[in-house]
């Protein structure tokens, strides 16, 4: 039996309120996610969905408990090692796309590879391949502001997958899109998932969640389902 891609044991995340007082946003989270899963995290606002996602994406280090990613004990890693692991394993997609405004589409795709020390020729080949794969070759010299929301999210997903991560974390990826665009993005996720990428998305939409194979419900920091 293979080990799960993600394993969380007794994860807690709190913020100080005052002297000896804390507010908890994640409580005793125990969770296993298998490689190849397409998981939707749902729950009302303030339930801790985004906090969980950023924790999984190793953007946040202020939690307690155990976190294994592909059998690597993240909780024991030094910050630099966590960054390396994140760069190797994780791609992120945001609700507001978070493309770099001053870079062209091409450069936005190139930058994660540049940060991962890919050679110039490798980068050129990978970016060309990704532009082609996502059918955005014609947009490569445009800046994000020159694209529609759907197109920006498409570029954002292309950027997330360009370094071939095992895991894609998406924080309400269709939150700013109309339903038609949202469906296209979900189809794209489905396709990536079929190709082997594990996907965890935070969403409020039952329709979007239906594209996945598993739903995790959060409320007040607790997993309730």
């Amino acid at each position: 039996m293979t080990a799960p891609l993600i394993k969380l044991n007794h994860i807690e995340r709190s913020y100080p309120l005052g002297k000896q007082q804390f507010t908890y946003v994640l409580r005793d989270i125990n969770l296993e996610i298998e490689e190849g899963d397409f998981v939707s995290v749902m729950g009302p606002s303030g339930a801790g969905k985004s906090t969980l996602l950023h924790l999984l994406g190793m953007h946040d280090f202020g939690w307690t408990g155990e976190f294994f990613l592909d059998e690597t004990p993240v909780h024991r890693l030094k910050p630099k090692e966590r960054t390396t692991l994140r760069n190797e394993q994780v791609g992120f997609v945001f609700q507001n796309y978070n493309l770099l405004d001053d870079l062209t589409v091409y450069e936005n795709l190139d930058i994660p590879l540049s940060y991962r020390r890919y050679s110039k020729s490798e980068r050129t080949a990978l970016v060309a391949d990704t532009l082609d794969r996502f059918s955005i070759v014609g947009k490569k010299d445009l800046y994000p502001r020159q694209l529609s929301g759907g197109q920006q999210q498409l570029v954002s997903i292309a950027r997330a997958v360009i370094a071939k991560p095992k895991l894609i974390l998406a924080d309400e990826p269709t939150g700013n899109l109309h339903s038609g665009q949202a469906e296209e993005i979900m189809q794209l996720f489905k396709k990536l998932n079929t190709e082997g990428t594990t996907i965890i998305q935070v969403t409020h939409s039952e329709t979007n969640a239906a594209h996945g194979n598993r739903v995790i419900q959060l409320r007040d920091g607790w997993i309730i389902k």
Partner: peptide, 9 residues
């Protein structure tokens, strides 16, 4: 933050 998120050290 975006740069860090996409891999910048």
């Amino acid at each position: 933050a975006i740069r860090v998120a996409v891999g910048a050290s």
